[in-house]
Design a protein around this nucleic acid. Structure first.
Length: 910
DNA sequence: GAGAATGAAAT
DNA sequence: ATTTCATTCTC
């Protein structure tokens, strides 16, 4: 896609100014863009030359502030993109959902919807995003002290053209220094992998490096900067926010690329990532059953150094593998690259790279041993990062993928080497992990699980957890829940750290004991963990089933701890299965982990109980099934839209930015994601409120202003457009959307929200409604007052007006502006609005805790949690609701029911 | 490339 | 107060 862009860039560069330079603010490195492009399209070689050119260009641009912080190198590049604000984060996270819900809508429409959602979003939830944005911004600023937002006036002439590609999502951009290293060259020279390394390190790492810098600043510890003192870093980092950690990771990676890859690799995150990669690869290999498996094992083995039982076994394999490795070293990477399509190839490449690295830099590795200590601290990060990266790569299939992998590998190798010596310190954890890493292939799981089995497994796991069986230990250790909760409560960032530690410990234990096969299984857990970080719960199963490659990876982020137990059991049972594919067990384990991490477990447990009591399994089973399959898709996407996400991953992957993105994403993913349903309802109800205030303010402002007329025009225009959108929407909200959501989204939502899970997901939509109805109580506390002060008043005004535009039950649209209009609506909604709000899955969780604020007489205030009674009510309501739908208000219009009707209406409105 | 949203920063 | 630009991605 962006090839054209690249061309543009070049031309632009040459031509210079162009039309609009994007302003310096954009940080995008021309190099990166070019490189990326090159990679994708052409070969590595070009990159070098281009890079040079780019550099020059950059220099020219450099005038700007640039930031310099980092080394500069390319000051111009330094400019990173300005950090996203809360709203943007929200958009990024939910856009995919919106799109899914409303495929027809174009981005604009989606954006509008997102804006509506945002407007409706509970302050608490908003705050999460705000915090995240702030955190990121802080980190960013630290990293780039000199960074100016954008010099509005200045228009740096040159910069613009180069920046063109920008849109790719890079979060951060690279610190120059890393880039300077330009490891890429090395890579380029010979093997793709190397190139990848180089590429990845400098450019991609840049963002990370920035983060690192920020972290350093924040911490005040030189360590990071020095990198040498990495060991300290971790601990401090831990203290620091997740972003910082990311930064560290990135830095480590960048360093790798640059000067001393090996050492950095040694660093915790990288190391872990490497391990993860290896493990994952190994897993895949095993799946394939081909030689590859051997290789992977060898890689692992090295990592395993710690010398556990597994290690020994692997050693044997490794010997064999090693053989191949050597052979491949020389060229295999290239070949592999060519074949990128095949995942296998990728894996092989990665393996090769790793091996090569090890071979080359054994010395460094030793040095890194020091770093190993660090690992203990950060393992999680690395995992997540690695896992994500891998995923991205896989999906991409393309050569670009290679880059990321290469990077990853590099890190890994170093780490591997280090571990041997270091073992003493904290390796255990790592080792365990390694063992775990091997997790079975997701695919297998999927197939088997396909439907019932998965569900059963899930149920089983849930039950077990509830009982405290294996789950207990895990749970106890498993911080995930905590994390989740914390994340839900706050930002995901903080949460991240704790879990990591736990994971390691767990991992260690588990890994050892398990069989070699187990090792495979163990791997999945890692994935799970990752997923957990993100959000995706049921990933495993799905990944297993179809296109396991990309999806599976995403789906299964690593969650070490949990895996262990399941794996063991699995081992017993299914060593056989293990060979071919993951055993159900493994899947379960992964699932379990995921659940735990997500915080879903608790809710699931509750649901299960309910299900048993109240209705039959059917629901639960369905639910689970749905979960596994559909959830998976979501997982793939990462929390956000699956498809989109994949695409992104691909792009990112080549950029190398993938890592950064991933890192960022983790946190980003930690952010709650809300189901459309919740928003829809809210939108209906809330808008009004806003309208009141908003209208007032907006109107007043408008009137006061001179531009009023122009605004009017705009308004009109917007209204029209909006109306259009709404047209499309209406369908969605009701059933169509519901169906879509039903499983997938619903689950997703439930995931983040932690607590709020609705037992009867099977029907998804319906249940949700029910629940909502039941919950009705809660509701909109804030909305009333909320005034969208923020932003330009104009915008608000517009928005408010727009929002005002609401459809009445009749279906006609009434301009929102009129407060008067609201009345009728309010009356209708009165009952509803509250309910609707309450229903938001996310909100529900919160709400539940809080209490129903608004009490609508009608709806009994259901306590936050659904009791059986509550469920029953909901069910009843739902039935009623349905009835109404089919035939509007057939019943006597009991006051209570009325609310429901409004709800429907609201949906329609949307 | 425009545009749709919000928000933060800079002017 | 106003202008930029951050993200996303169709048209």
């Amino acid at each position: 896609m962006k090839g054209s862009n690249r061309n543009k860039d070049h031309s632009a560069e040459g031509e210079g100014a162009g039309k609009r330079p994007k302003r310096k603010c954009l940080q995008w490195h021309p190099l990166l863009s070019k490189k990326l492009l090159d990679f994708s399209e052409e070969e590595e070689e070009d990159e070098e030359e281009e890079d040079i050119d780019k550099v020059q260009l950059l220099e020219a641009d450099g005038l700007e502030q640039d930031v310099g912080e980092t080394e500069d190198d390319e000051s111009p590049e330094q400019r990173a993109r300005r950090p996203m604000n809360a709203f943007l984060l929200f958009c990024k996270r939910h856009r995919s959902l919106v799109r899914q819900e409303h495929p027809r809508l174009d981005n604009r429409g989606a954006t509008k919807i997102l804006a509506d959602w945002w407007a409706v979003l509970d302050p608490k939830e908003k705050q999460k995003y705000t915090d995240m944005a702030k955190e990121y911004k802080d980190a960013f600023m630290k990293a780039n002290p000199g960074y100016r937002w954008c010099p509005t006036t200045n228009k740096p002439v040159k910069s613009p053209t180069p920046t063109v590609n920008p849109r790719k999502k890079l979060w951060a951009f690279p610190s120059d220094s890393s880039r300077d290293l330009t490891t890429p060259k090395k890579a380029k020279t010979e093997e793709i992998p190397q190139l990848n390394f180089g590429m990845a390190d400098p450019t991609q790492m840049g963002g990370l490096s920035m983060l690192l810098l920020a972290g350093e600043h924040a911490l005040g510890t030189p360590e990071i900067s020095s990198r040498t003192s990495q060991p300290d870093g971790p601990s401090k980092q831990c203290q620091a926010s997740a972003l910082f950690q990311f930064a560290e990771i990135s830095s480590s990676t960048s360093q790798m690329g640059g000067a001393e890859p090996v050492k950095r690799c040694g660093n915790s995150a990288l190391f872990q990532l490497a391990e993860m990669c290896l493990a994952s690869e190994g897993m895949k290999m095993e799946e394939t059953k081909l030689i590859k498996s051997k290789e992977s094992d060898g890689g692992r083995i090295k990592e395993m150094e710690k010398g556990k039982e597994e290690r020994d076994i692997k050693m044997e394999k490794s010997n064999e593998a090693g053989f191949q490795k050597e052979a491949e070293f020389e060229k295999p990477s290239k070949e592999n690259i060519r074949d990128p399509k095949d995942l296998r190839n990728f894996e092989e490449l990665q393996m090769d790279n790793v091996m090569a690295i090890k071979m080359e830099d054994p010395k460094e590795i030793r040095k890194e041993s020091e770093d190993d200590q660090k690992y203990g601290h950060f393992p999680d990060f690395s995992y997540s990062a690695s896992s994500k990266i891998i995923i991205s790569d896989v999906p991409s299939r393309k050569d670009h993928m290679c880059h990321p992998h290469g990077i990853m590998f590099i890190e890994d190798p170093t780490t591997l080497n280090k571990p041997e010596k270091i073992k003493k310190k904290k390796k255990k954890s790592k080792l365990d992990r390694h063992g775990n890493d091997k997790p079975t292939p997701k695919k297998a799981c999927k197939k088997r699980q396909s439907s019932e089995s998965d569900i059963e497994s899930v149920m089983y796991t849930i039950e077990a957890v509830a009982k405290g069986d294996w789950g207990v230990d895990k749970l106890g250790e498993a911080p995930r829940k905590k994390v989740r909760t914390s994340s839900s409560g706050k930002g995901g960032i903080l949460d991240v750290k704790p879990p990591k530690k736990k994971v390691k410990s767990k991992e260690k234990k588990v890994s050892k004991e398990k069989c070699s096969d187990i090792t495979k299984e163990s791997r999945p857990p890692d994935f799970l963990n990752i997923s957990a970080s993100k959000n995706t719960p049921g990933e495993v199963p799905e990944g297993m089933k179809a296109e396991p490659l990309t999806p599976t990876e995403d789906a299964l982020p690593p969650s070490l701890p949990i895996q262990t137990k399941p794996e063991e059991s699995d081992c017993h049972r299914k060593t056989e299965t293990c060979g071919s594919r993951k055993s159900e067990r493994s899947c379960k384990g992964a699932l379990y982990k995921t659940l735990v991490s997500e915080g879903m477990l608790t809710s699931l447990r509750a649901n299960v109980d309910r299900g048993k009591r109240s209705s039959g399994k059917g629901n639960s089973s369905d639910h689970e099934g749905c979960w596994s399959e559909e959830s998976w898709a979501f997982n793939q996407s990462g929390t956000s839209g699956s498809k989109k996400f994949k695409k992104k991953l691909r792009e990112d992957s080549f950029l190398g930015s993938a890592k950064l993105d991933e890192e960022f994403e983790k946190k980003f993913n930690s952010l709650p994601q809300y189901s459309p349903l919740t928003f829809d309802r809210k939108c209906v109800s809330i808008p009004r409120k806003k309208k009141k205030t908003g209208n007032m303010s907006s109107e007043s402002t408008k009137t006061s202003k001179g531009p009023f007329q122009s605004q009017k025009k705009n308004l009109f225009h917007k209204i029209v457009s909006k109306y259009k959108h709404k047209k499309e929407k209406p369908n969605v909200p009701e059933k169509g959307s519901g169906d879509k959501w039903s499983h997938k989204q619903f689950f997703l939502d439930s995931i983040h929200p932690t607590e709020a899970i609705f037992p009867e997901d099977k029907n998804t939509m319906e249940p949700a409604y029910k629940v909502k109805n039941a919950l009705s109580i809660h509701n909109t506390p804030e909305p009333a007052m909320q005034e969208p002060l923020v932003g330009s008043q104009k915008r608000k005004a517009r928005k408010t007006k727009i929002t005002h535009l609401v459809r009445t039950a009749d279906g006609r649209v009434s301009p929102a502006g009129g407060t008067l209009d609201d009345k009728p609506k309010e009356q209708l909604q009165r009952s509803l609005p509250k309910v609707t709000e309450a229903y938001c899955s996310d909100d529900c969780s919160h709400n539940t805790v809080e209490e129903p604020r608004s009490n609508t007489p009608e709806m009994p205030a259901v306590s936050a949690f659904f009791s059986l009674a509550a469920l029953a009510e909901v069910a009843a309501m739902e039935n009623v609701h349905r009835g109404q739908r089919s035939t509007p208000l057939t019943h006597d219009g009991q006051p209570k029911e009325m609310p429901q009707a409004p709800v429907l209406i609201s949906c329609a409105d949307q």
